[in-house]
Design a protein around this nucleic acid. Structure first.
Lengths: 227, 227
DNA sequence: TATTCTATCTGAACAGCGTTCACTATTCAT
DNA sequence: ATGAATAGTGAACGCTGTTCAGATAGAATA
């Protein structure tokens, strides 16, 4: 009674072929150059055939994003494998994220910058790989706090988000290339992490209080923006 | 001999009508929902007519981005208008950027996140408004350093980029909404700036040296990434 | 005034896109 | 051998940015 199994196996082969073709277009030709017809041409099927395996183009991107999170998680694991010092592990993990954004710019854009894939906007928190990774880094941050290396007045989860969002900004600016001519994105990412970690080791939590400026309310209430 | 002038005036009227229609679609319906045909329908012209005013759709987006930079520059100017303290001005300017990203998400995406408009990738440094604004903030940073408020071992330009890239990351995460369920983007942006400024006031510049980890070389040389 | 020239706008078309659907061909279960 | 289920196709729908020949209107010239 191995017929059903073989059929299922065949299905997976075609499914993987679709994903491989999509991934190749995605990585090499870029995000916007992936089309159902191009995928179909590469696997020598008709465009309509793909819809027997994926409900829509978005679902293909969703599957690619899952791959991306797997690769990112493995990158982080590999980067922190040989380091036992919590602060060292933290640095490695953060830099692994930045490195990932440079090595797989298309994946990075899909996973963290793009808004055009509805399923990704909705089910973002479902990616276990990402959750597992953040949990691991969070533990390192907690260790840094407990050992007195960090005196930041933040919960580990919040501190992680601060660091991660910071390096995300550096990755984003490197991705778009929107930098002043003389600036180097790598040095920028480096300096940013340095400043953030320095702030974590010494912050008295009084530098940036809300009453200093209009931090809690929008600065622009009425603008001259044309409607 | 006012005929040429009137013709030119009429041209500008139509040109502005095109931009107004594009802007309305852009702001209300979103980035990807702007199409030449929809613009044409709104101004009651044929789609082809637009090409007499803009060489391509990209150039319309370029013009919208210019508007965006103007709005952003004005936001920054308004936010820092009543503040004379350099550090206060710096905070206001940074927060004005974050506020802008929330108030005009479509502009923000076009100006700082998107890569699908070729002309923006190429001519980014040509936006004078942005340059003028950064120069002003840079002066405030220099004042902070000179007065001893900042002991950061960075040039004002580099320090500005660090701060700006940090808040850009917070804006980006708020834009995509890719945050853990319990997290608040505003608080995150706040904590990030706090940590960065704290790092600037106290950093000994020895926290994050390259030799500590593989900061200068990619962590992922060989991955299991399917080719 | 009649004619030529110029600028502007249109309709139709091209090539591409995601997606749907009636239909065929193949394979499995009875 | 017959009926049912499955996989894949070709054609089409409505959309996209863009191009181009032709029409129309107005200004400049004779």
């Amino acid at each position: 009674m191995g017929i059903k199994e073989r059929q299922e196996r065949d299905r997976q082969v075609v499914r993987q072929a679709i994903l491989a073709a999509a991934r190749e277009l995605f990585v090499n030709e870029g995000f916007r150059n992936v089309s159902m017809r191009k995928i179909a041409e590469r696997i020598e099927y008709s465009p309509a055939a793909i819809y027997g395996y994926f409900p829509s183009k978005d679902d293909i991107f969703f599957a690619l994003a899952e791959e991306g999170f797997r690769v990112l998680a493995d990158s982080g694991a590999a980067a922190t494998k040989r380091v036992t010092d919590p602060l060292g592990r933290l640095k490695e993990a953060l830099w692994a994220f930045y490195t990932f954004s440079k090595q797989y710019p298309q994946y990075f854009e899909l996973m963290f910058l793009d808004r055009s894939v509805p399923s990704l906007n909705q089910d973002f928190q479902r990616f276990e790989f990402f959750q597992a990774t953040t949990a691991r880094v969070e533990a390192d941050i907690r260790a840094c706090i407990d050992s007195g290396k960090f005196s930041v007045g933040l919960e580990p989860a919040a501190a992680l988000h601060v660091l991660w969002v910071g390096i995300l900004g550096a990755a984003a600016i490197n991705h778009t290339g929107r930098l002043a001519p003389g600036e180097d994105a790598d040095a920028l990412a480096h300096d940013l992490l340095e400043a953030l970690l320095a702030g974590f080791t010494t912050t008295l939590h009084t530098t940036f209080v809300a009453s200093d400026c209009a931090l809690t309310t929008p600065v622009l209430e009425a603008t001259h923006h044309a409607s």
